[in-house]
Design a protein around this nucleic acid. Structure first.
Length: 801
RNA sequence: GCAGGUGUGGCGAAAUUGGCAGACGCACUAGACUUAGGAUCUAGCGGAGCAAUCCAUGGGGGUUCAAGUCCCUUCACCUGCACCA
């Protein structure tokens, strides 16, 4: 009937030649900034999941443009990092080359879908012109003391042979390869993200993120309020600091627990009589994976330290110190005061090792069978006895701690500083130089970018060093400070670095003086709508917000928060309802679908497939149905006669459909937008003649979702200028009023009949008409009418007894 | 365990926010046209019943003239986080 490929290429060329989708940096128009997460140009190419989210935002972009907005809808490539590097290693080509090839494929696939990206703003994070500014921003972090090098126990992936951030090692497994991570002590660059913990929490109020995304971020930041308490060490002029959220239970402390990594153990090695037992436990803990260690259901283990005892500062009692892996080294102070009566974990530990349990909150029971965590009257607690209000007790205790200098109020976060070093070749070199004399020295701004060398070996090394360490001619340099011999930092940045500011570069992508001009940043402001996967709710989104808040503090960007609204698309699952994967053999290649049914049909189908935010299973039959819908629209052209103005009997539904489609696309209810267009086309199908206006409005409304075929039909039928160059239609409320409405009539709430009456018929009249209906009379017979309810234009309900 | 979410035909889903449950599409059934049909058109399509009618939105209870929608309770599944002191 028609050749989709020909039509699609024709219009894709038209848009390119006419620069239809170019966003203007100097414009009087109101701006609208739509952002989709830029993809990794992996060897696998475009996924039908990409098609879903890109089509969604593309249709909004197209509609907004027609509504007169200056729309920024850019696309680029997030090409540093492990996937690109592994692809290169596997295929024995340089990552740079691999990235180039993959981008080419990816881009041609995106072009074939007809997306309205402004391609003049395209860049890759691996372009030296781009990563120059990533390095530049790192130097800013360093200048402000927010980038620092520290010896730190990090998550190490033995498979990838690189360190990972906490965010990349969630659940104790490497996010890339699924290998269980190990703990490894390494000197690392870190970004002081903890300094922004509160800002990252407060900033959420300025956004319209989905609730579940906000919750995920709040949980990850993990703010908790409590107190630091200093326990004395018996016979020593030293203290053991613990963090607790329940200082009110201090009188219930019967032992202390420190993590196996706690520095106290090294410090007082000589005093500890059972040091070999302690060391054996430390070794055991180290060899366990994070998963094994943090399995809450497993039985508690631990060793009592013989030779070190703590003194409870509120009652002077001596308590034993234990080590156990249920206390984590990297949270709080790595040490806890244990209150077995009121903490489940401490309770389990005390039961196992026969430690005494002293209740300090009265729960009314004789015997404690489990930790009591509720409210109650304070007992066994000295000056706190008798108080029942928990908040009051906590406040009293904190006051006591502070006046006696044995503790103070503190806030704690689960969020930790961002581990920013990767022992990898394919990443932005960290622009730092190490000099024997001067220590770590930043590379001067004018020397940026520090380019990655062109070499042949980029496999990770066995030693845990970056592959760059082997390239001596690159590593050896002079100190920018003293001019003496120095070496470059050989670790590279994590691949989250490039994606932590890319939306800013899109606004001013060719600027070689600054990462982006401030006035231009000010014009575009915040990203209005940012779409991406749920998997980035705590990582990319947290890093990006942190980075942006920092730039704001430096006066480099105009707003504290980067993204106004964040939405997440549901996954496209395989036809069998499982996640698409090569091993399951249920992967659908968008290229094949475009070839068989055309880009428009694929776009329509993915919008029609279901609720945008929910997962949906692929269905080739569903796609065929959407192709049939487009074919039907194509056939409608034969009914078009040379007349203008809407056919009067269609006027009502046309106006309703304009309203529905406009609202649905903007609120991302794409499935119902498509369905209302199907309904409209079904109406067109029922009549013999269509005016040019009738046909054009249908094509216009469908255009954001199916841009090629609709433009082609406007052109074939000579319906005027291309849709993309004309304004989006408005609707006329007065034309949407129906002349007659169908009223449902029920008796005792059960539907008995219905009637067609003029719109806005009065209540009394409706009741009168309703009672005349045969089936209604039948149900009213010999009954007493108690109540008559009328909802105008909707329903009549007669209640009888 | 905590947090967020979802339960509606054979399937994907709608439901103007308390007012005719199942729009639209898929699959299926019957028929028409056809050398042919993975094209098109017509009709049907939650269950039971010849019918009037009855039963149906995970289960149970409640509010109401009226509940998929509101309240209580319970079950199932998904997705995060999880020994965070």
């Amino acid at each position: 009937m028609y050749n989709t490929k020909e039509i699609e290429e024709k219009w894709q060329n038209y848009w390119k030649e006419h620069e239809t989708f170019k966003a203007e940096n100097n414009s009087d128009k109101e701006k609208y900034y739509l952002l989709v997460e830029f993809p990794y140009p992996s060897g696998a190419g475009l996924h039908v999941g990409h098609v879903r989210s890109y089509t969604a935002l593309d249709s909004i972009a197209r509609l907004k443009r027609m509504q007169g907005y200056n729309v920024l809808f850019p696309m680029g490539w997030d090409a540093f990092g492990a996937p690109a590097e592994q692809y290169a290693i596997k295929n024995h080509i340089h990552p740079k080359k691999a990235v180039e090839e993959n981008i080419k494929v990816f881009k041609s696939q995106l072009l074939s879908m007809g997306y309205s990206f402004d391609w003049t703003r395209e860049f890759s994070t691996t372009d030296p012109e781009y990563y120059k500014w990533t390095q530049w921003q790192f130097l800013k972090f360093y200048e402000q003391g927010l980038a620092y090098k520290a010896e730190k126990e990090i998550n190490w992936c033995p498979q990838c042979k690189t360190g990972l951030s906490n965010e990349d090692a969630q659940g104790g497994v490497c996010e890339r390869c699924g290998t269980k991570t190990e703990k490894k002590l390494k000197s690392q660059w870190l970004l002081r993200m903890t300094k922004y913990a509160d800002r990252l929490l407060e900033g959420l109020d300025e956004t319209e993120f989905l609730e579940k995304i906000k919750v995920a971020q709040i949980n990850w930041i993990g703010k908790s309020k409590g107190a630091s308490v200093f326990f004395g060490l018996e016979g020593l002029d030293d203290k053991l600091e613990v963090y607790t959220t329940r200082p009110d239970t201090l009188f219930g402390v019967t032992f202390m627990v420190i993590s196996p990594e706690h520095k106290l153990l090294e410090k007082y090695k000589d005093r500890i009589k059972n040091i070999s037992e302690v060391e054996a436990y430390q070794k055991e803990a180290k060899e366990k994976t994070e998963i094994e260690r943090t399995d809450a259901s497993k039985e508690k283990t631990g060793v009592k330290i013989d030779g070190l005892k703590a003194i409870n500062p509120v009652n002077g009692e001596t308590v034993e110190i234990w080590i156990s892996d249920y206390v984590l080294a990297n949270y709080g102070t790595g040490a806890i005061m244990a209150v077995p009566a009121h903490d489940e974990r401490d309770f389990a530990f005390a039961k196992k090792f026969g430690i005494k349990i002293i209740p300090v909150i009265d729960n009314g029971e004789e015997e404690l069978t489990e930790a009591y965590t509720g409210d109650g009257k304070m007992i066994n607690s000295g000056f706190l006895n008798g108080i029942t209000n928990k908040e009051e007790v906590i406040e009293k205790m904190i006051n006591y701690l502070e006046t006696n200098s044995i503790g103070h109020k503190t806030t704690n976060y689960k969020l930790q500083d961002w581990i920013f070093s990767r022992q990898r070749f394919w990443g932005e070199p960290i622009p730092m130089v190490y000099c024997e004399k001067c220590g770590w020295v930043p590379v001067p701004y004018e020397e940026l970018p520090i380019l990655l060398p062109d070499v042949t070996a980029y496999e990770p090394t066995e030693t845990g060093e970056s592959p760059l360490a082997n390239i001596t001619e690159w590593v050896n340099t002079t100190c920018p400070h003293c001019g003496g011999k120095a070496t470059r930092e050989t670790d590279t940045m994590p691949n989250w670095a490039g994606s932590s500011w890319y939306w800013l570069r899109y606004m001013d992508p060719h600027n070689d003086k600054e990462f982006a001009n401030y006035d231009i940043l000010k014009y575009w402001g915040m990203v209005d709508l940012y779409n991406g996967g749920m998997e980035h709710a705590t990582r990319h989104l947290l890093y990006a917000r942190f980075w942006h808040e920092f730039l704001y503090d430096q006066g480099l960007v105009p707003t504290p928060e980067p993204f106004k609204k964040r939405v997440a698309h549901g996954m496209i699952l395989g036809e069998n309802g499982e996640k698409m994967s090569k091993s399951r053999g249920n992967v659908i290649n968008p290229d094949d679908m475009v070839k068989a049914y055309g880009a428009d049909a694929l776009r329509v189908f993915e919008m029609f497939i279901g609720d945008y935010s929910k997962d949906a299973s692929w269905s080739e039959n569903g796609l065929k149905g959407c192709k049939r819908f487009l074919d039907k629209i194509y056939r409608l052209k034969d009914k078009v006669v040379d007349k203008e103005g809407y056919t009067s009997e269609l006027e009502n539904i046309i106006n309703k459909t304009i309203k529905k489609v406009t609202e649905d696309i903007l609120s991302m209810d794409f499935n119902t937008a498509v369905s209302s267009l199907m309904i409209l086309s079904n109406e067109y199908d029922k009549i013999n003649e269509l005016t040019k206006s009738d046909y054009r409005i249908l094509l216009t409304l469908l255009n954001p979702i199916a841009p090629h075929i609709t433009e082609e039909l406007v052109s074939i039928c000579k319906l005027g200028n291309p849709i993309c160059e004309t304004p989006w239609p408005t609707y006329d409320e007065t034309k949407m009023i129906d002349e007659t409405v169908t009223i449902a009539v029920s008796v005792n709430g059960k539907l008995r009949s219905s009637m067609s009456v003029p719109t806005n018929t009065g209540k009394d009249e409706l009741i009168r008409l309703a009672k005349e209906l045969e089936n209604v009379q039948k149900h009213l017979k010999d009954k007493e009418i108690i109540k008559e309810i009328v909802v105008p234009n909707k329903i009549v309900n007669i209640v009888v007894k």
